[in-house]
Design a protein around this nucleic acid. Structure first.
Length: 430
RNA sequence: GGAGAGGUGGCAGAGUGGCCGAAUGCGGCGGCUUGCUAAGCCGUUGACGGGGUUUUCUCCCUGUCCGGGGGUUCGAAUCCCCCCCUCUCCGCCA
C-alpha cells in the first residue's frame, strides 16, 4: 500500500509507475485524490461538531437549572443528528479511500528494465554450462518413472490434474534437498520458523495477495482462511501490528511450507510433468529491515546470493534475470528471478524469485519499528525462494541424468540419501 | 462441541456512566547525586489522522483509539448485543 500523502504529493509518479508495470488503474489516482479532498474537508466539519458535543456534554452535567438543562439537551439532539450523518459519510469515504489505496501499485525502482512480459526480462548473469548429452536425453517424467519415483497418473486420480506422487528414491531426494537447503540457511543465521499454512485474510491482504489474487488461492469460506501459496505470507506477517525496536532489525526468517495454487487461467499451460502443480513444497527466506532503500537493496542482493549458492552446490546451471516492469507484481519495487537449466525445455526455467517491497507490505500489515532517533517507521520487507520442490527436482533429475537412466546425486545430498552417489533405475520399467 | 473466567499503554496492573488517553509500579529517555558501578532523587515518556506554525529541528490546536464491530445515553474503558482471541474444566481427537 502506498502512503496517501505520497500519492497526494506525487500523483504523476504513481501513474507512471503503474504504466511501467502495465497495470491498468484507469482514473483511480484522480478519483482517490478527489475522495481524499472531500474526506479532509468533511473531517474538519465533523471534528468541530464533535468538539462542540464534548463541551456541551460537560455543560449539561454541570447545569443545575432544569430549564437550562432542557435547552442544552435539545441543542445536543440537533448537533447529534448532524454529527451522525457526517460520520456516516466519512466512514463511507474512508472505506473507498482504503480500497483505492489497496489497489494502487508500488512504482518500480528506476533501474527496473522496461518491458511488457517475462519475455523482456533482462539477463544479469549466468553460472555453469548446460550439459550436452551424448545420448537421447529424457525428461524428468521419464527419468522419474524409470526410477519408480514419479507417478502422475495416480496423482491425478487422487486429486485431479497437476497433482503427483513422489515415491521411494525421488521422495527421499526431495527430503534431502529440502533439508540441505534448510540447514544451510540456518547456518547463515536465519531463524527457522514453523508457520501456519492456513491463514486469515489480514495476512493475505497484508502481504498483497488480496485483493486481486483471490482466484489463485484455495480459500476456506466457512472459516475465512486461505491456504498460502508461499511461506512468505505467514513469515512476513509474524510481527504485523507491532512496533519493533531498531536494534532487533534485521529480522531474518526461514520457513518451510506446503504451497497451494489454483493456477486459474493457466489451463493448458505447462501441463506436462512437475513444473506447474497445485501443491508443492518451498523453503522461503524473508527479511525485515530498516526503512532505508540502500539497506533493503543490499539485503536483496544477499538473499539472491543465498539462493545461487544452493544451486552451485547442487551443480545446477542457472541464470539470473532482472524482471521487467510488466512482469512485476503490484507491490514489488524490483525482482530478480533465478532460472535453472532444464534440459527438457532446452531453456532456463524459473525456480526462484527474489522480491523487495520497501514498505508496501509493511504498511498494509502495520508492521513498524522505532528508530534509534525515536521515530516510528514502517520496515522494509524482502523475500526469496531458497528451494522449491518439485521444480528443483526437474533440474536435478534432468541435469544429472545418465545414459542408463540412472541419476547422479550431487555431493551435498548424498549423506541424506544414505551415502548413495547414484539413483539406479528399476530393472523392469512399469 | 459444552460450561466458566478474562482481553486496558513496551510490560505488570487499577479504573464499573461524566475533566480518563487513562492511577500506580516496572521498563525507556533526560538531568542531579556518586571516584566508578549499583542504589537514590527530580523530570519526562503511546499510536494514528486533520488543521495551523516553521527553511530543517519544532511548537500549537483538534479528533480517533482501552480485542473487533454494532447499540443504549446529552455523555461509554465502564451498560447491552454479536464476533474474535486467551486461560480453566468436560467431551472429542491426530
Amino acid at each position: 500500500m502506498l502512503d496517501l500523502r505520497f500519492v497526494r504529493e506525487n500523483p504523476e509518479k504513481v501513474k507512471e509507475g503503474a504504466a511501467r508495470k502495465r497495470i491498468e488503474i484507469g482514473g483511480l489516482v484522480d478519483r482517490l485524490l478527489a475522495l481524499d479532498a472531500e474526506h479532509r474537508s468533511l473531517l474538519q466539519k465533523t471534528e468541530e461538531i464533535r468538539a462542540g458535543q464534548k463541551r456541551a456534554g460537560r455543560d449539561i452535567a454541570a447545569a443545575r437549572d432544569t430549564g437550562l438543562r432542557e435547552r442544552l439537551l435539545a441543542e445536543q439532539a440537533a448537533a447529534k443528528r448532524e454529527g451522525k450523518e457526517l460520520e456516516g459519510r466519512l466512514a463511507l469515504l474512508e472505506g473507498e479511500i482504503r480500497e483505492a489505496l489497496l489497489r494502487l501499485p508500488q512504482p518500480p525502482a528506476p533501474e527496473v528494465p522496461d518491458g511488457a512480459s517475462d519475455a523482456e526480462n533482462v539477463e544479469v548473469r549466468r553460472w555453469g554450462e548446460p550439459p550436452r548429452f551424448p545420448f537421447p536425453a529424457r525428461d524428468h517424467v521419464a527419468i522419474g518413472e524409470g526410477l519408480g519415483g514419479v507417478d502422475l497418473e495416480r496423482g491425478a486420480r487422487l486429486a485431479g490434474s497437476r497433482n503427483y506422487l513422489l515415491l521411494g528414491p525421488v521422495a527421499l531426494l526431495e527430503e534431502a534437498v529440502m533439508r540441505f537447503a534448510y540447514d544451510r540457511m540456518v547456518a547463515k543465521g536465519f531463524v527457522p520458523v514453523a508457520i501456519p499454512v492456513l491463514v486469515n485474510d489480514a495476512a493475505m491482504v497484508g502481504t498483497g495477495y488480496y485483493p486481486g489474487g483471490e482466484a489463485q488461492a484455495y480459500r476456506v469460506a466457512e472459516d475465512g482462511l486461505s491456504l498460502v501459496g508461499t511461506a512468505e505470507v505467514p513469515l512476513t506477517s509474524i510481527h504485523a501490528g507491532e512496533i519493533l525496536e531498531e536494534e532487533e532489525l534485521p529480522k531474518r526468517f526461514l520457513g518451510q511450507s506446503c504451497c497451494f495454487r489454483r493456477e486459474a487461467g493457466a489451463a493448458g499451460r505447462e501441463t506436462r510433468g512437475l513444473y506447474r502443480v497445485h501443491q508443492f513444497r518451498k523453503i522461503e527466506q524473508v527479511v525485515l529491515c530498516a526503512s532505508d532503500p540502500a539497506e533493503s537493496a543490499r539485503w536483496h542482493a544477499a538473499i539472491l546470493e543465498n539462493a545461487e549458492e544452493i544451486l552451485r552446490a547442487l551443480e545446477l546451471p542457472y541464470r539470473v534475470v532482472a524482471v521487467c516492469g510488466g512482469d512485476l507484481g503490484a507491490g514489488q519495487v524490483s525482482k530478480f528471478d533465478v532460472e535453472t537449466w532444464m534440459p527438457s525445455r532446452g531453456a532456463y526455467g524459473e525456480t526462484h524469485s527474489a522480491s523487495r517491497f520497501h514498505d508496501f507490505q509493511a504498511r498494509r500489515l502495520n508492521l513498524r519499528y522505532r528508530g534509534r532517533d525515536g521515530k516510528v517507521r514502517f520496515v522494509h520487507t524482502l523475500n526469496n525462494t531458497v528451494v522449491a520442490s518439485p521444480r528443483i527436482l526437474i533440474a536435478l533429475l534432468e541435469n544429472h541424468q545418465r545414459e542408463d537412466g540412472s541419476v547422479g546425486i550431487p555431493p551435498p545430498l548424498r549423506a541424506a540419501m544414505g551415502g548413495r552417489e547414484v539413483l539406479q533405475p528399476r530393472a523392469r520399467p512399469g
